[in-house]
Amino acid sequence: MKLTVYLAGEIHTNWRNELKEKAKSLNLPVTFVGPMENHDRSDSIGEEILGEQPNIIYKDEAASSINNLRTQILMSKSDLVIALFGEKYKQWNTAMDASAAISLGKPLILIRPKEFHHPLKELSRKANVTVETVNQALKALSYIFEEA
């Protein structure tokens, strides 16, 4: 059995590469997909496809349409979603993606620091598993493949 895992969450830190490398070292049969991690490309993709926009609001809306298309397709084809709420950056996209996973009936592992317990309590209760670290998420993912 091979799983496709959508990695939702902030794109400014190295957490995805950390998770991918550790999963690879454990020989987990997993393919990872996720949002565009190149922030400049993500912000400019609307104009690359639709042409120059009249102002920043239209530029953002054009890019959002293309990024939402990518997210919807990749997430809908995924078997599992892992969503990380980091400590430093605003996490609106993570909340949106975690909610989308729940709405799609996708199993969800939510990673959030202990200090985010209260603001994310409802979302945590909707997730299948809530953990505090990438390593804990990897352990939960690894458990799926353990034989009895």
Rank of each mutant, 00 (worst) to 15 (best):
I102Q: 08
E48F: 14
V131L: 00
N17C: 10
G9W: 12
L138P: 12
K114P: 02
I73E: 00
A100H: 00
S76D: 03
R112S: 12
V134L: 06
T4D: 04
F85K: 01
S142Q: 14
G86S: 04
K139Q: 06
T133I: 04
N55Y: 11
M75G: 00
T31P: 00
H117F: 06
E52V: 12
A95Q: 00
A8P: 10
G9Y: 14
Y89S: 08
G34K: 07
N128D: 15
T71H: 11
M75E: 03
K59P: 07
P54T: 03
L141D: 14
E87V: 06
K121M: 15
L110I: 02
K24E: 10
D43Q: 14
F32S: 03
Q72D: 12
D40Q: 14
Q136V: 01
P54R: 02
E21D: 07
A63Y: 11
G51D: 02
A8F: 10
I111F: 05
G105S: 07
E48V: 12
E18I: 14
E52I: 10
P113M: 07
P119F: 10
V134H: 08
A83C: 05
K90L: 09
S65I: 13
G105P: 09
G105M: 07
P54N: 02
I56V: 11
Y58M: 10
N93Q: 13
F32C: 04
L74S: 02
F116L: 12
F116C: 02
A100L: 03
Y6N: 09
S44Y: 15
K77T: 05
L7Q: 12
K114N: 04
S99I: 00
N93P: 10
E146H: 14
T133D: 02
L19M: 15
N68Q: 15
E132Y: 04
R41V: 14
A8T: 12
S142F: 09
Y6D: 09
I73W: 00
H118D: 09
I11V: 11
S142H: 14
S76A: 05
D40R: 15
N17H: 13
P29R: 04
A62F: 04
K88T: 06
L26G: 03
S124C: 11
S76L: 01
I144Q: 12
I111T: 03
M1K: 11
G86N: 07
S99M: 00
T130D: 13
S103L: 09
E18G: 05
S25N: 14
E132S: 11
E37P: 06
L123G: 00
Y6R: 08
S42P: 04
K88M: 02
S78D: 00
N27L: 11
T133L: 04
D40C: 12
I49A: 01
Q136L: 03
P35M: 08
L104P: 03
D60E: 07
S124T: 13
E146L: 15
